[in-house]
Design a protein around this nucleic acid. Structure first.
Length: 235
DNA sequence: GCGACAG
DNA sequence: ATCTTGTCGC
């Protein structure tokens, strides 16, 4: 298996690797009792030169914060639609290595199997971590879908090549829906169930939302930032 | 051949 | 993704 630090693959090599790995993805539930849920989000700084991975570990139920990790490293690949995981996963894995506890479920910002070759960033990460993962994306990569119900919690299937690859979920009324798809070791129904259970009146489920918030905080000088107003409602 | 295209 | 303040609406 390719070493992580060697993931400087050409687009064609990356696509070949995806085709090789995709068959290993499981969409059958293999979750045990869920006590800890992690949220992951990757961002970029210095005009893309630096990749920043944020991981938040939350307790279930209750969603108290157990751990927060922010890891930075040089970016190694450009953004290419369909090959996002090769750009984001190295940093994400290094952030995960710093966690002292293992999550039972991971929510990732991006697609799971709702990908041209069924290997979106959530699936790819789940395969490497050997953990159940769910992809929650803010926009569509591939597939088609009908009108999305207006009621919070309702959804419509996302289809690609005659296959249901995900759900377009109305996570909050009057707000653009999110694209939920199984990453690894989890089914679509269970994925939707967990995403809905982690919603707190917001568009994004808590794990992903908290990772976003942690990541987008002013890069360098956040050690001196004030702590206040943690109870916002909007998104 | 012509669009579409997660973050 | 990121650059960025205030502002309209529920």
């Amino acid at each position: 298996m390719t070493a992580l630090h060697d993931w400087t693959l050409s687009p064609n090599e990356a696509i070949a690797l995806q085709k090789e790995l995709a068959p290993r993805i499981e969409t059958r539930d293999r979750l045990g009792e869920v006590k800890r849920i992690a949220g992951v989000d990757i961002g970029f700084e210095d005009e893309g030169e630096t990749t920043r991975a944020a991981v938040v570990l939350l307790a279930w139920p209750g969603l108290e914060t157990l751990e927060e990790i922010v890891h930075r490293e040089p970016t190694r690949m450009p953004y290419i639609p369909g090959l996002l995981s090769f750009r984001e996963i190295p940093a994400a894995l290094n952030a995960f290595e710093r966690l002292s506890q293992r999550p039972d479920l991971v929510m990732v910002d991006g697609q799971g199997i709702a990908h041209p070759r069924r290997l979106g960033v959530a699936s790819h990460l789940g395969l490497w971590l050997e953990l159940p993962t769910i992809g929650i994306a803010k926009s569509r990569l591939c597939g088609r879908h009908g009108d999305v119900p207006e009621k919070c919690g309702d959804w419509t299937p996302l289809t690609h090549r005659k296959e249901i690859i995900g759900a377009v979920l109305r996570s909050r009324e009057k707000v653009k829906p999110v694209f939920v798809s199984p990453g690894h070791r989890i089914s679509l129904d269970t994925s939707i169930d967990w995403v809905v259970k982690c919603l707190a009146g917001t568009k994004l489920p808590e794990p992903t939302r908290r990772a976003d918030r942690l990541a987008s905080r002013r890069g360098k000088a956040f050690a001196h930032e004030k702590r206040q107003g943690e109870l916002g409602i909007g998104d």
